[in-house]
Design a protein around this nucleic acid. Structure first.
Length: 205
DNA sequence: CGCCCGATGTGCT
DNA sequence: GCACATCGGGCGT
């Protein structure tokens, strides 16, 4: 099993966001594996990106974004939700990829403890939903995703062809002015391909 | 110090 | 489709 290494996350943040599609997000929980294939991401890039949490400079909250690539930036929002990002690019430049959705593949029984009251298709189809399903909270802020001993990692899956990838503007940032509002920095697997062998079977043990 | 509002999710109308 | 939950960060006073 190969982990995505730090060099992968040191790439340009939009490249990482695109390349994370098809990779496997893995949470090690008391010996159990909870995992899913990443199928939706968004890139946030630098202080000049007025949709990025770093838009007003470095603060205690967003400090992890300024650190080394490959670490997790986990933030709390709306008074109740956690969201997971992977820090990208060079040290000192704040950039991160928000993981917006995964397709659950392993540890379904564990995920069901948090999300079982809903249909499985809705367990991880949102940034706060997948954090709830994988038991990810603020204690993971700053965690090294590239550490083989870590409790939260990203394993290499199979590259997805452009034919199943869609791009578009980021969601939930209506307050941001142009050009940031319309930057095509949201990447997702087309709905009709979500459960095709291209995405699922070839990556599932 | 107080106020506004958010990279969302859920339940109700 | 829409209101609301719920709280801390960020910024203006």
């Amino acid at each position: 099993m190969t982990l995505l290494d730090r060099a992968f996350f040191e790439q340009e943040v939009a490249v990482v966001a695109r390349q994370l599609l098809g990779q496997r997000l893995v949470r090690h929980l008391a010996g159990a594996r909870l995992a899913g294939i990443i199928v939706e991401t968004e890139a946030y890039r630098g202080e000049e990106d007025l949709a990025c949490h770093a838009r007003s400079g470095q603060t205690a909250r967003n400090a992890v974004m300024y650190g080394p690539a490959g670490h997790a930036y986990v933030y709390f929002t709306y008074g109740m939700h956690w969201c997971l990002n992977a820090v990208c690019g060079a040290v000192g430049f704040p950039a991160a990829v928000l993981v917006r959705a995964i397709i659950p593949t392993e540890g379904l029984d564990e995920m069901a403890k948090r999300r079982g009251r809903f249909a499985q298709a809705q367990w991880c189809n949102g940034p706060a939903k997948l954090c709830q399903a994988l038991f990810v909270d603020g204690t993971f802020n700053g965690t090294d995703l590239a550490d083989p001993q870590g409790l939260l990692t990203i394993e290499a899956g199979k590259a997805l062809p452009e034919s199943v990838v869609q791009t578009g503007p980021r969601v939930g940032i209506g307050y941001a002015p142009e050009p940031w509002l319309s930057m095509p920095w949201r990447f997702s697997v087309a709905a009709e391909s979500l459960h095709s062998g291209i995405v699922k079977n070839e990556n599932t043990p």
